[in-house]
Design a binder for these strands. Structure first.
Lengths: 134, 134
DNA sequence: AAAGACGGTATCTATTTGATACTGATAGCT
DNA sequence: AGCTATCAGTATCAAATAGATACCGTCTTT
């Protein structure tokens, strides 16, 4: 397989090509809200208003955008129930569910390394302050 | 542990709290360029200009921003060599290296599911077009 | 008749990202 | 001496994205 010079063999050249599909997908996973929504849907269908409560502080516009793109990518289904008041359920597809495991591992990493990262931030910011104040 | 009502027990309430540290970290991981840079640094130190070539299309400003925040979070070190022309090497810290594994798994997922996602996109877009054209 | 639940959309502003041009130090060439 | 190139970034401005806030239509309940 082709590799980028200097990058070693671990990373296929593809990932670095801006037109490469896996890069596109990596950006979807990296979307600010998408991975959070996926995890919230882990246990079954959730309706729009409940999603808003669970993924607090997200505005309805942005939540809609997020859900639309997840739907477009086949990770989530949207089901309208003909009721009043309306009920729209969002649910993970098989594909969406398959994403839960790698996401959970990433979350695990995050949770176990939060202290180290926050400590690093504090140290860095302190150093910056000192440099500014002389 | 506290959980959000309706979310099941798999997801701790913390992750949904906007002030929760793990959410902050999740956004860093989800940063558009950060995870890419980390993976490019997997095999050892890389200098700024090489990073630009490898993570193609990223502008120097954005690359600098990305590197600064990775440095702040203790994932990357920045070493200036007193040379001319200047040489600045970026290298993963132990903490940064520990992120490689979960990232690799995510990438693996991405690569093996690209076809399904692209197919879903095409189908979705076709359906949209049809709806518009009547 | 009035108010509320629900799933959004519309509009406007603030923040982030990106394109492009440029800087300062020095080395090597002519 | 003057010209050009390398390198690691900044500066400046435009474009895309995220976010705050207000509003809509349908129906039910009070």
């Amino acid at each position: 397989m082709d590799t980028i010079e200097g990058a070693g063999d671990a990373l296929p050249a593809d990932v670095l090509n801006p037109n490469c599909p896996s890069r596109v997908i990596f950006q979807r996973i990296g979307d600010k809200w998408a991975s959070l929504v996926v995890q919230v849907l882990a246990d079954g269908p959730v309706r729009f208003s409940d999603l808003r409560k669970m993924v607090s502080v997200v505005t309805p516009k942005v939540l809609t955008q997020t859900l639309r793109s997840l739907e477009r990518d086949g990770l989530v289904t949207r089901t309208i129930h003909a009721q009043v008041p309306p009920r729209v359920d969002y649910e993970l597809t098989e594909l969406g569910r398959s994403l839960l495991e790698p996401l959970a591992q990433l979350r695990q990493w995050a949770e176990s390394h939060v202290p180290a990262i926050l400590a690093a931030r504090d140290a860095y910011d302190d150093a910056q302050d000192e440099a500014l104040l002389g």
